[in-house]
Amino acid sequence: MTSSPAPEPRAERFVRELAELKIPDPAVARAALWLRLGGVLMAVGLVLGAVAFPLAHGTDNSLAQGDALAVGLGGIAAAVVGAALFLRYSLTGFLRFWLARQSYDLELLGERLTTTPPTTSLPEGDPRNGVPRTDPAPR
């Protein structure tokens, strides 16, 4: 008869289940929101800027032309702000990745340099310059 394994203590199971829990990072969600907002502002700003031109040209009324100019300027401002937001949050993501990659490469290089054996003091009897010694007598 085989003995069944001892049940896992509740506290240990609790810690394990919590470790497996996927918790969304609120900072990441906020960054994604700003990035999306930047993209939307940029697109809306460009559209408003483009629409303002035919609006201003399509009328002789100076008041309506003033309104169209205001819409155009607002669009440009929105596009500038949106582009700044978009660049800031997309660049952050890219630079974070680049930095992580850079530090990984540096670590790899460091490991390689520290683990390479020294080549200056080869023991007696070892081949030098790829040519094996023919005289085995000790000196």
Binding site: L18, I23, P26
Partner: peptide, 14 residues
């Protein structure tokens, strides 16, 4: 922290 893990942001149901 629950079981040593920071659970800020986790849903109450989880």
């Amino acid at each position: 922290l629950l079981g040593g893990r920071d659970v800020c942001g986790a849903r109450a149901g989880e």
